[in-house]
């Protein structure tokens, strides 16, 4: 039995509201903000409609379960020599179900030495996080992983 149902059957719904922590952002609530863009639209725009090929060269590190949807660590590393001839041009990070799916577009140069981007993102709900990487030869590689966002804990 789910906890919520359990509460209801026992008629202590009022008590339940007290233990639901407020999320600091409302997923799916109107208005959707000026930057609203779906993942499909963003992917199309970024890759000029070409799409991206899943690749082992792209390592996407996100937790399977987020401790807190407001702070989800994300790291993208790309296996690349980062030379003038062969380097990673851009690392895109998408939260596929956020109102604005775009999180970051990181433009690198050979002067980075290694290709990596790391930050923390907000996820409004359980969803896939995707990394789309543009290589200097114009090809697009990708990696994605699902992150489960839970609302829980005591405050």
């Amino acid at each position: 039995m789910l906890r919520r149902e359990f509460f209801k059957t026992l008629g202590v719904v009022a008590a339940a509201t007290a233990v639901v922590p407020s999320m600091s952002f409302a997923a799916g609530a109107a208005p959707k903000g000026p930057n609203e863009m779906s993942y499909e639209a963003a992917l199309k725009a970024v890759t000029n409609g070409k799409g991206a090929t899943p690749s082992d060269k792209v390592s996407l590190k996100v937790p399977e379960i987020a401790e807190n949807g407001a702070v989800v660590p994300v790291t993208v590393e790309v296996d690349s020599p980062m030379t003038e001839k062969d380097y990673v041009k851009t690392i895109h990070v998408f939260a596929t179900k956020n109102n604005n799916s775009r999180c970051a577009a990181v433009h690198l140069t050979p002067a980075n030495g290694k290709a990596m981007f790391s930050s923390r993102i907000k996820l409004g709900q359980t969803q896939d996080v995707a990394a789309i990487v543009e290589m200097s030869d114009g090809s697009f590689l990708s990696a994605a992983q699902s992150v489960k966002v839970t609302i829980g804990g005591c405050g």
């Binding site: 590190k61 379960i65 489960k148």
Partner: peptide, 14 residues
């Protein structure tokens, strides 16, 4: 919903 050790390590890195 138990988080994995790998997840915890990721948060520790933060």
């Amino acid at each position: 919903f138990a988080m994995s050790d790998a997840d915890r390590a990721m948060y520790a890195e933060m």
